[in-house]
């Protein structure tokens, strides 16, 4: 017979074991990605597979920097960062207007968010034709503009929700104390929804960072993003897995860094936004 305490202990141990196993299973692809990027070609193709490279070998990364392919990561970074910044600043102001003055009536906000549901493939062809006319294909301006436009509805929708949660009385007292509207937004509203701002900013950044189809259509060589560059390697020379994994690793690191900085706000912002729904 087991005592109650021992049974509880056993159950806890089982739960922990299951949780660890699940975590390991989910972490493994990321681990494997980074390991492959450090392996030599022989190790990549060896059977049975080697679980870790014999030594840290940066040749795969060196190749990317020598060929100048690594610049695509920089392109992604510039495009994603600038478009996220523009979308956030325009979107927050727009969201404030929607939340406080009910601009455009009750249904405008729903219409705006419905734009975000459109699958990219449905709009990418007309946009491409337009861009050819305007000469925006393969330029920073073109890509940034597109990501900004595509992210704006999302930013507006999220920020509108967060702003609606802020008590109106706070803003009114600021107005009474002699702030104008811009000061109210800057000093009261935005600091109050910092968690929401960070979560939304991360999502817009990640969207532009991960996007493939727009980049594939609208970039050629000048502003090719890293996602497009990765697909160019598939089935290329014999050692293409090394290049793919090194490039993917380069593409993964900025996301990790961004998440590490924002994690505190991130989880809170997301769950706040979702629970209120």
């Amino acid at each position: 017979m087991m005592t109650l305490g021992r049974r509880r202990g056993l159950r806890l141990a089982l739960r922990l074991a299951a949780a660890s196993a699940l975590t390991l299973a989910f972490m493994f692809p990321i681990y494997w990605l980074f390991m492959i990027s450090f392996k030599t070609p022989e190790e990549i193709y060896s059977f049975p597979p080697k679980w870790y490279p014999s030594h840290l070998n940066f040749d795969n990364y060196a190749v990317l920097f020598r060929d100048g392919d690594a610049v695509t990561v920089w392109n992604s970074l510039v495009v994603a960062f600038i478009s996220a910044a523009i979308a956030m600043s325009l979107g927050s102001i727009c969201a404030y207007s929607l939340a406080r003055f009910a601009t455009g009536g009750r249904h405008l906000a729903n219409w705006i968010v419905s734009q975000r549901m459109i699958p990219p493939i449905a709009v990418v062809f007309p946009i491409f034709l337009l861009y050819v006319w305007f000469g925006l294909v393969d330029t920073y301006v073109g890509v940034i503009l597109l990501y900004t436009v595509f992210n704006l509805p999302y930013v507006i929708w999220m920020m509108r929700g967060y702003i609606l949660d802020i008590p109106r009385a706070l803003e009114e007292s600021a107005l009474v104390d002699g702030c104008n509207r811009w000061q109210v937004i800057w000093r009261v509203v935005l600091p109050m929804c910092r968690a929401g701002l960070s979560a939304t900013a991360i999502f817009t950044f990640v969207f532009a960072w991960n996007d493939f189809i727009f980049a594939l259509v609208l970039t050629r060589t000048e502003v090719a993003t890293y996602t497009v560059q990765i697909t160019h390697y598939f089935g290329g020379q014999s050692n293409f897995w090394a290049k793919i994994s090194a490039m993917s690793a380069l593409g993964t690191v900025p996301i990790f860094v961004a998440m590490a900085f924002m994690q505190r706000y991130f989880v809170r912002g997301i769950s706040l936004g979702a629970v209120k729904g």
């Binding site: 975000r116 967060y162 969207f207 936004g273 979702a274 629970v275 729904g277």
Partner: peptide, 23 residues
Amino acid sequence: MPPKSGSGRRSCFLLLLAALAGV
């Protein structure tokens, strides 16, 4: 009212987590 959280693969997990916490 639709949720304010959207897009992205992991956000489903976060949505459900928030819902479970709200039971």
